[in-house]
Design a protein around this nucleic acid. Sequence first.
DNA 1: CAGATTTCCCTCATATTATTAGGCGATATC
DNA 2: GATATCGCCTAATAATATGAGGGAAATCTG
Lengths: 154, 154
Amino acid sequence: MANEVQSLDEIDQAILEALAGNARISLKELAQQVGLSSPSAAERLRRLEERGVVKAFTIDLDPAAVGYPLQAIVRVRPLPGQLHMVERIIQDIPEIVECDKVTGEDCFIARLVVRSMAELDGLLDKVAERAETNTAMIKASPVKRRLPPLSRRK
Amino acid sequence: MANEVQSLDEIDQAILEALAGNARISLKELAQQVGLSSPSAAERLRRLEERGVVKAFTIDLDPAAVGYPLQAIVRVRPLPGQLHMVERIIQDIPEIVECDKVTGEDCFIARLVVRSMAELDGLLDKVAERAETNTAMIKASPVKRRLPPLSRRK
DNA sequence: CAGATTTCCCTCATATTATTAGGCGATATC
DNA sequence: GATATCGCCTAATAATATGAGGGAAATCTG
């Protein structure tokens, strides 16, 4: 897709920041905040989506509020020859809510939400024969997901 | 806040899944998808927000499209006595777009977006005297952020 | 350079959606 | 049983979104 670096002007940036703060903002309000008319703001937004800058509008869900009081970050190192199988297993465990493939010894870093340590054990058992894992429980989140700086791009 | 486990019925679940797929869905469409009238769907949504189940509506931004072709996951181990200072520094580096405090040797796991390896070096230098770091570059994302299972909660 | 084209913006009319008001049925409580 | 609460509905009203048409500035072309 459009992964090329796109030129964002100040209005684009203001749009992104407004949306990051409330993705359900009305077009009217968005237009006001960025200093355009509603149809122009709508067109700008459409273009940001079309260009793949905005990949999706989504929600920030509180795992604890839906029954998952514990979160863990698990590093996964597949045993020789098991890389693809491990990746498949990771994708098929729905409690794994995010996973990146990374350089280094650990091939995957996954974020899990679980109801209990026992459940965590159960999930890790699913890859136990095919990978080594290293688990860290999340205690707090000093930086919640936020936008990076959008200006000063070259 | 309302971090207590809340009862989600099937309609709540359907609402959350619809919103996770498109947070800007119209109330009319949302109501249709979950089988309620628009005012009822709106009230349900309001309650999910009020209860803190939905913490925010936000966007999924493509870092590469805004100038950040590289992403890294950095584990940070503060040196003795430096924990709070390191946390402050992490919060103050805007390219760190997410950071969790975790159990274990590494105290923080941070997600960074950068334009280049040189920039990554520069950022890591900011904590170099106060912490040890271990960096892994993200190669792919086999599981993009998704909702956990919302049913079968006890 | 002049003219044509493109891009981005606007206003206004029309269409669509959101909100509000009022009411109903089911369930819980006294 | 009577009353209150909750969650749902429809319809009216208010607000917003979209489409149509047009203008100004920038860019392109001969």
